[in-house]
Design a binder for these strands. Structure first.
Lengths: 126, 126
DNA sequence: TTATTTTTGCGACTGAGTTGCATTAATTGT
DNA sequence: ACAATTAATGCAACTCAGTCGCAAAAATAA
């Protein structure tokens, strides 16, 4: 365990999440911070931020990991089950403020749910 | 395009999907048919079966591709948007017969939705 | 049966994500 | 402020799912 340190790289990643309000894929993050920090570092920072509950992760259409800052739900216990939307044209991914209803399944205990919506975003529709 | 040929390998894969009624990951399929057919062959057969609408695919919790035979919806135009359930204990994955409601997003056109439920299945609960 | 076209096997490859380890940087205690 | 401690980073090598090109084999059509 131990303390989480506020390193230069952590600050850079945090700053980015504060600027952008959409979600971002790890691949894009690696590209964006190319030269500033190592691939492994990014993966490790994201892991830590997620552990702390400062970001949440989910998989995009292609199964690639995406992260977004928890805006709506930062105070709560990080049990935000909201859908995510990915534009199949421009690739942009964002969180959707919409409460999804989880079906009850007989004899099964559902602990998590992730809903991924794909389609065309407002920019690409125009 | 051309005709889809009914090869020995295709038969084996079809037989398996008729036997099992749960979904199965590509990794498990590769393992299961190890010695009987090549990894690439499996991937290609699954691609073809999906093109034909005989199976559908989705991503499991770890982003790995899974396939299942379309039981409930084989006749329709393969627009089956049903959830999938994955047991985090035993790893089993299955289709869930439950109509999910897709939220309407302003200015966005949603074409697809995939809902993945994770938790503990009836066997592992006992 | 022969000609045509699709599938397969193989091996090499790609690309995301992980790991071990030595080095560097942040924190803690004095 | 400085030394000691402990966490984070860089690097390079690795794992593993999935893809690709191409020659050989198997299906279908003629």
């Amino acid at each position: 365990m131990g303390v989480v340190r506020n390193t230069k790289s952590v600050k850079l990643v945090n700053d980015l999440f504060n600027e952008i309000h959409s979600a971002i894929g790890v691949v894009e993050l690696v590209e964006k911070f190319n030269g500033q920090m190592n691939k492994s570092t990014i993966y490790r920072i994201l892991d830590r931020l997620e552990d702390e509950g400062r970001v949440h992760s989910f998989l995009g259409v292609n199964g690639l990991k995406h992260y977004a800052k928890c805006h709506d739900c930062s105070k709560s216990e990080h049990v935000d089950i909201h859908p995510h939307f990915q534009c199949t044209t421009c690739g942009k991914v964002e969180c959707v403020s919409y409460e999804i209803k989880i079906p009850r399944l007989s004899n099964k205990k559902i602990e998590q749910a992730q809903l991924l919506l794909t389609g065309t975003c407002e920019v690409c529709l125009a």
